[in-house]
Amino acid sequence: MAMIRPLSTAATPGEAGTGLGAPESRLPAHSRYVAVRALQRMVTAIRSNRKATWGFGLLVFFCLVSAFPGLIARDEPNAMAYPTALGPSAHHLLGTTGLGQDMFAQVIWGARPVLLIAFGAGIAATGIAVLIGVGAAYLGGFWDGGLNLLTDVLLVIPLFPLLIIIAGYLHSAGTLVMIFVITVTGWSYTARQLRAQALSLRNRDFLEAARVRGERRLYIVVVEIIPTMTSLIVASFLTNALYAVLFSTSLQFIGLGDPTIVSWGTMLRSAENNEAFQTGQALWIIAPGLCIVALGAAFALLNYAFDEIGNPALRPLRRKRVKQSG
């Protein structure tokens, strides 16, 4: 989780298509067509690209777990109802914590707040990024200058230290506060990418056509430009969601989250506080950590796979198979 965001999804201006064959009605058939195509390509990628399949599978798995935790783990995650520090057994799949809670129940129930933060902050930060990035590119002039400056300033202020001091003033940030803080500080990187792509679209023929037809600006932005940028918007969401997972669990680990919420980050916090190492409870540290890595990997693998689609040069080379016989 570098402070500089890695795995950048380069803007792929090729997405806009040529506009050939767009019917000459007032309907934005072109943009809708491009948006549907982009989504179809993602579905194809999930089916055929192994990284995307894994990423998608993991993500669906965690979504199901956090939607129905009660079906998977019967124990109350917070109840200190058992002997402490039991090893794994049929009753306690991962044993119990040093505080006598069922660890399996904690891991399962702990998925929900992490996913809520990932999707909440991911969607909200991407929304702001679209609004500011596309708005700046399309409005141009004074607005572009101002919004772009705001983006740049926020982009260079170190994000994680800023999050730490805000969370430090707030004391124990719950799920909603966490989503809010991560969103407000974290949208700038993707806003910049979205602006770059929107700028490259500005002089395309299909937008010119819409202008000549006399469409309003808002209409052009919402109906013509944004659908054309579908794949970059999805990539922005994946980036923002990944950072929300890493940042929120880190904040919880250092004790700036709400300690009463069962979450992977707070689990690691109490494992460290109760000296899980010294008492030989390695699972208390390994289990929630592996979950964080798996969820993060789901977002990162999807993002990397979509990157490969946008830039065919990056795709893995397949050795041509020589058929041995008929």
Partner: peptide
């Protein structure tokens, strides 16, 4: 062929957790 997926995954490991595992 093995590197890209491997390093996509190592780059999402939280610093603090890897530190804990190495200490362990």
């Amino acid at each position: 062929s093995i590197m890209p997926p491997t390093f996509v995954i190592t780059s999402v490991i939280p610093y603090f957790w890897l530190g804990l595992v190495l200490i362990l």
